[in-house]
Nucleic acid binder design. Structure first.
Lengths: 361, 361
DNA sequence: TTGAAAGCGCTAACAA
DNA sequence: TTGTTAGCGCTTTCAA
């Protein structure tokens, strides 16, 4: 199968190359339908596919977009961002160059150079998780930041609305009747962490629930971290112990499940839990399935691509778009357990510690 | 920042464009160091970056690779394949075009056409999981199949060695002293399923353990499926019940954990489990952490790219490369529980069914 | 309505 | 050692 060029089609149709180009590309051109038809048939018959390279060189538009990411392509976190970006690109007839830098600044600079040399029509810079970062050098104007925001501004960006997400999570618990609600937080992800905490505080305030500092603990963003944090929370005396826990992410929520099980507690009956991320193949497969706040990865990816390609208006040149994080209700939130209803203090529960005895529920 | 061309560099260095090209690209060319130096400085000063488009048009080599996948970019399964392919491409100075077809044949054909029009130097066709598929039309010769194999042959491909993986998994259990070993299989993935089953049978035969058909059950490849399968297995009378379960994948293994917990059994102490996939953020975060067989996604991705780019010999033109699946030992395999050691039959355990009573461990 | 000609930015043969 | 020339395959004036 040898490469067929526009001149081959021209010869076959008995016209010039320019006529072929016009007939095939410009529907508004003053070319009679008969000619157009003949050209089309010739092209079809020969299996003509114009060289994107030559066309790009001539028109200076490549219908190609560069997507630089620190990790999204290679971790299970945010693959859906790629899917969203990819789908939008395809709908616009664009191809995407993907480069995963693994967070290496040298690779990143090389990637920016290489992509610029390819004359991509647009560029997206994506992070694996919501952060504020110094904008890399050399990024073309109009680059869209995905799941991150450049410190200096000057670019458009889209990030999850973590504050509203935190509010939604805590509202689930409040609506179920909980009053002692913990936030199992982390230090690993400052931006999201702070925003969600703000949401947590706002909803508690709204509900007239006093903030209890003992109910705000921090741990690593892993199942093990979550477990450790939960232990601390569940070690509190019964009347100060949380009946519902809002976890920074789903992995930590799994750790809460484990900690609870080890004390003979059952999630839902004895303890309500809300996660964050709606991580694929994790949240839904817990027992009971985890109620969580979804990170709108797909939508963010799509938004970024559509803005980068100019098919969606984005407001100002350096505006940050907040994407809603929807609640995914499954089965880890129920009413608080009855037996810890009010502090009648017949047993001096607040004096006991976990070290003293067995499970005290 | 206006685009600088080779002629700009030429003018600045006081030489012709061809000299610039030679000086910059051909280290062996007969160009005096002084000239070369002058050209380099001029290029540097102007921030010259050659247009890949023009170069590709001229040389017919684009230093780009097309990677078509059904889903890998957008699910947590096989992102590491992308990472491997991406790393290898970068090392060879290539950029990768990624297209995710979502299994849609029309999108797939469009993608093949678009990528061909870009004159990619190589092409990789990747699947999310090990399958044998009819080769799509129009794929260039030399395309490498990743995690799948074309029915008709004619292409090089790399897939996991699932038979050896199945053997390794069962050997873990046999080595720990188990004799009643179940295979919690599935119908959802015929190729891998069959291969792993072969491995299972081979190791049992080697160990002189008779095959018990009751110990081979099938379920869906999800935690829920795994749980259902495990229920069936654990419902067997004590002397026929498995003490170790080899699961088709990690998600099913999670279901086994759940089923066991609901019967008051503890993984490791009462039941040993081996998974498959070593799925990120899943296998390692179980309690206890799951011993499993890793799918070598990263290595397969790298292999495919290196072969596609011609930096690694692959043997014959249509050979299938089997990639080893290493054991990842964590903490879900122990010796079989003592109490089910030998059938002394004082209690007519084999006559009881789960329906009759409570937990019977 | 169509074709000739120029040129996108680069490389490579050939000539000087 | 270097420059001239041609041409990769296409699009787009401009002229016929």
């Amino acid at each position: 199968m040898v490469k067929v060029r526009i001149s081959d089609v021209a010869a076959a149709a008995g016209v010039s190359a320019s006529t072929v180009s016009l007939a095939l590309n410009k529907s508004d051109a003053r070319i009679p339908d008969s000619t157009r038809q003949r050209v089309r048939e010739a092209a079809e018959a020969l299996g003509y596919a114009p060289s994107s390279l030559a066309r790009g060189l001539r028109t200076q538009r490549t219908r190609t977009v560069g997507l630089i990411s620190d990790q999204i392509a290679t971790t299970p976190f945010a693959g859906r961002m790629l899917a969203g970006a990819q789908d939008a690109a395809r709908e616009q007839g664009h191809l995407v160059f993907l480069v995963d830098t693994q967070g290496d600044a040298v690779i990143e600079q090389d990637a920016i150079a290489a992509l610029s040399a390819q004359q991509v029509d647009a560029m997206i810079y994506a992070c694996m998780w919501h952060q504020v970062i110094p904008a890399p050098q050399g990024l073309p104007a109009g680059t869209v930041f995905l799941d991150c925001r450049p410190e200096e501004g000057g670019y458009r960006s889209v990030v999850p609305d973590d504050r509203a997400g935190g509010m939604a999570a805590v509202r689930e618990l409040v609506a179920a009747g909980h009053r002692r609600i913990a936030y199992l937080d982390t230090d690993d992800s400052p931006i999201a962490s702070t925003l969600r905490y703000e949401g947590y505080r706002a909803v508690l305030a709204d509900a007239g629930i006093e903030l209890d500092p003992a109910l705000h603990v921090r741990a690593e963003t892993s199942a093990m971290g979550g477990r450790a944090g939960a232990e601390a929370l569940l070690d509190l005396p019964v009347d100060r112990r949380p009946t519902g826990i809002f976890c920074f992410n789903d992995r930590m929520a799994i750790g809460v499940y484990t900690a609870a099980h080890h004390r003979g507690m059952e999630i839902l009956r004895d303890l309500s839990v809300v996660g964050y991320d709606d991580q694929q193949l994790v949240a839904a497969e817990q027992d009971p399935p985890l109620t969580t706040i979804a990170l709108p990865h797909y939508d963010m990816g799509r938004w970024a691509m559509e803005v980068a390609l100019g098919v969606r208006a984005s407001g100002e040149e350096d505006a940050t778009h907040l994407m809603e994080c929807p609640v995914v209700r499954r089965n880890s939130v129920g009413p608080p357990p009855a037996q810890v209803a009010k502090p009648s203090r017949r047993r001096a529960t607040h004096n006991r510690t976990a070290a003293e005895g067995g499970p005290d529920l």
